[in-house]
């Protein structure tokens, strides 16, 4: 019997970088192999897990029904596992359609939540989904917004608005460490060290330094150029694109910025994204 470490974030907020860095870290700072199919921290909303572990007929189920079973999935997995389980999460921290917490506090060992300036998220997400910026900004302000396509490998994940997402995790995320994308970019070694401590990973300062160096943005980008990245949304679309903070300044119009601020001003102010 063990529990889960949730690595949670709104999409395009640095979750993948953190997972790659942790993958490198637990391997003593080794280069991440982009050709390998293994990734550290598989997605919590895995369709295959629900099918394989619970014999759930996901094809025939509604999204709400599948979601209501996820706490059962995590219980079963935690019961069977000997070591802590790591999962990537894009869902908001909320209750299921059946009225219980999607991420059961009793099964949660640790949570890491990564937040990123929503103006940069908008630019990155638009690129990732192939939608235009206005649509993406509307999506980030839509209380009913969901992620994960029907019939694909992921179950539906309710994101709701960017603000709701952030607040849900800050309010209800058990054992939470809050990280900023901008800080990860500026001081990866320091951030990775804090994460390792929070998650109680057995890693030396040397491992942390090596892992941070092995997953510098330019190195990941070069590796993607060479081997491709299997989490890319489509052929020819980069996953590791710019990796900068404040890039929105040359991508968003003043009206678009104003819409984001109108939607998310209070939460932005609270997090220092003024």
């Amino acid at each position: 019997m063990t529990g889960f470490c949730w690595l949670a974030s709104y999409p395009k907020s640095g979750n993948t970088w953190l997972r790659l860095a942790l993958q490198s870290l637990i391997n003593g700072g080794k280069e991440v192999d982009f050709r390998s199919r293994e990734t550290f921290a598989a997605i919590a909303a895995s369709r295959a897990d629900l099918e394989d572990v619970l014999d759930a007929p996901v094809d025939e189920m509604t999204d709400d029904e599948a979601e209501a079973l996820r706490p059962r999935l995590y219980e079963t997995q935690a019961r069977a596992a000997a070591a802590p389980l790591f999962r990537k999460v894009h869902d908001a921290c909320m209750t299921t359609y059946a009225g219980e917490p999607l991420f059961p506090p009793a099964l949660t060992l640790k949570t890491v939540y990564i937040v990123r300036d929503p103006r940069d998220v908008a630019v990155s997400l638009a690129h990732h989904t192939g939608r235009d910026l206005d649509q993406t900004i509307a999506f980030m302000g839509d209380p009913a917004a969901t992620f994960g396509l029907a019939g694909k490998r992921q179950l539906r994940q309710v994101l709701s608005t960017w603000s709701f997402h952030v607040e849900s995790w800050l309010r209800d995320g058990p054992e939470l460490l809050l990280l900023r994308y901008e800080h990860m970019l500026a001081a990866p070694e320091e951030v990775l060290g804090r994460v390792a401590l929070h998650l109680r990973l057995d890693a030396s300062p040397m491992d942390v330094r090596r892992a941070a160096a092995a997953t510098r943005f330019d190195r990941l980008r070069a590796a993607e150029d060479r081997y491709g990245f299997r989490e890319s949304p489509a052929a020819g679309v980069r996953f590791f694109r710019r990796g900068i903070a404040g890039g929105w300044r040359d991508s968003l119009t003043p009206a678009q910025v104003a819409r984001i601020v109108a939607n998310h001003g209070p939460v932005m102010a609270r997090l220092g994204y003024a």
């Binding site: 572990v53 619970l54 007929p57 189920m61 029904e65 209501a68």
Partner: peptide
């Protein structure tokens, strides 16, 4: 014994879809 599938000693199965 799972939340959906149960299997009995004689190989019989109980399959429950809530609702």
């Amino acid at each position: 014994r799972g939340p959906i599938l149960q299997i009995g000693g004689d190989g019989s199965c109980r399959y429950n879809m809530a609702g």
